[in-house]
Design a protein around this nucleic acid. Sequence first.
RNA 1: GUGCCCGUAGCUCAAUCGGAUAGAGCACCAGCCUUCUAAGCUGGGGGUUACAGGUUCGAUCCCUGUCGGGCACGCCA
Length: 586
Amino acid sequence: MTSSDFPNFKTHFIGLLQQASNAVTSLEAAVSDIELTRTKQASHGDYSCNLAMQLAKPLHKSPREIAQLLVNALPPSTYLEKVEVAGAGFINLFLKNSAKQQFLHYILHSKNTFGNGTLGQGKRIQVEFVSANPTGPLHVGHGRGAAIGASLSNILAAAGFDVSREFYVNDAGRQMDILTLSTWLRYLELNHIHIPFPQNAYQGEYVKTMAQQIFQAHAQRYVHQPELLLDSLPEAVLATEMNTDEQLDKLIANTKKILGQDYAYIHNFVLTEQLGDCRNDLMEFGVEFDTWFSEQSLFDNGLVAHAIELLAKKQHLYQQDGATWFRSTNFGDEKDRVVQRENGQFTYFASDIAYHLNKFERGFDQVINIWGADHHGYIPRVKGALQALDLDAEKLQIALVQFAVLYRNGKKAPMSTRSGEFVTLRELRQEVGKDAARFFYVMRKSDQHLDFDMDLAKSQSNENPVYYVQYAHARVCSVLVQWDGNVDDLQDVNTEALSSPAELALLQKLIDFPDTLEMAAKEFSPHLIAFYLRELASEFHSYYNSTRFLVPEIPLQHARLALIASIRQTLSNGLLLLDVSAPDKM
RNA sequence: GUGCCCGUAGCUCAAUCGGAUAGAGCACCAGCCUUCUAAGCUGGGGGUUACAGGUUCGAUCCCUGUCGGGCACGCCA
């Protein structure tokens, strides 16, 4: 038997049920998408089908009666032990033990490709995630998007998609100007020039670090005329504190005027610095991108103006109060949106339209944005813009990740980048470790709120579920080392001896892996992989405690070793999807 | 005020997009190491799925309402 000729049981049985359905009912009454689910109880067989219940109404017969007709019409299968009608009209399928036992050959031949599927059919899919403003270190909230995006990308790749990972760099906006100003003010302080530091500028220590770097490299090179900085700001303000947006904007404008060409240097320095830090941080978290896409480049290449012109040409824009508006209400948005301000500047939305147009022009079959839940109100206008440009908005799918609320010392911790009071992703990694953090993040469904208790995460780092899974992997490795044989020799051994309930349950669990992976890809749900791994590890640990593997009877020993080697392979493949290591020893 | 998300065991979360007796972990109680790793295993108590109706063979899931929590509602990014 080779790895490629093993059928997907689920697909195989759905095909048989489809044939039975065609024999029993007419085309118009037929159910288009036959569902086959795994059973929760062994007495219900391995797979269950509710087709008969769905056909009860159109056929005007009782579900059990239809179920029996379907069973009678079911073509024979070499993998089926028996088929039963049960309960309200379920059709329960029982897999032959031999089919389960032989599945191990498939796993051991497939090795690290076991679980991979063809759902994606090589379609090009882009996943954009994190895309945090490069104005400070990533915090634990960004970590969640990073972990989910990276794991989902891996899952989609395993499911047969051609995945491109992208980080959208917001390097063109006001936030970058505020960071530039903040750094310059700190730099001036190092030159003993003290100007009140605005409350709403970036307070973090990392700003001082960057100022220090500039100071060390260039001394007083960028001091210029700081006395002009406070021009047109009322004296009264200076006496107290600066904390309004208008004051901040005035400071930025003055800074640009004073520094002239040198403004670009500082701006570029802080951007490069923060982006480098971000890239490094993510890399250490196991998250890498194929493309870092610059927002500024959209302006530099005229793509923003081009996108807006295109909308104008298609009659979706109008002028009001001196600004240019996009009629997004025509596409389900609750109000129209400004794309170009009265002062001629394009809005963030305008560059986002250009960005999404560009994504589509790059020819992706599907585009996924992983956004924080606070952006949900933004979806209708972006999809609306795509529709207005006569693009297929269905190709864009937005996966919302709910907020992570951080608790520290039993209290809600602030997470504002501006104030500088936040727990960074780097701190989290150092305190609980990369593996534990990555696993912890995907242990929850992404559209569920996440309570992140730092104290718990730290104190329980030894009880984190990730160690439970890794421990199962290490245990198998340990047994195989003591067996002292070649694992490849187990690929085709006779596995008929695996007949205990625990062994058959484990076999079925392994068979579930490809289906679980496909489901995770379809539903954008990495948490399914994490839960699957924990369940598989649980069944293994239980089996480990009840059964000896290195028994004298060689056929039995080899069969059991083939089973645990397959478990190890599956754990390893699953952990790899989450970028969690699979250690040989613990 | 309007819109979106959510409410499941003491706590943190699942439940294969409407299926059979709603499941795990933590915590609590009682056991298991001279045998392949005890970061493990076995057993136990824990629930009116926020509440009230509705839809149907069948509802944690779909619809309506109430209560409670989060988020978003800018010519900010």
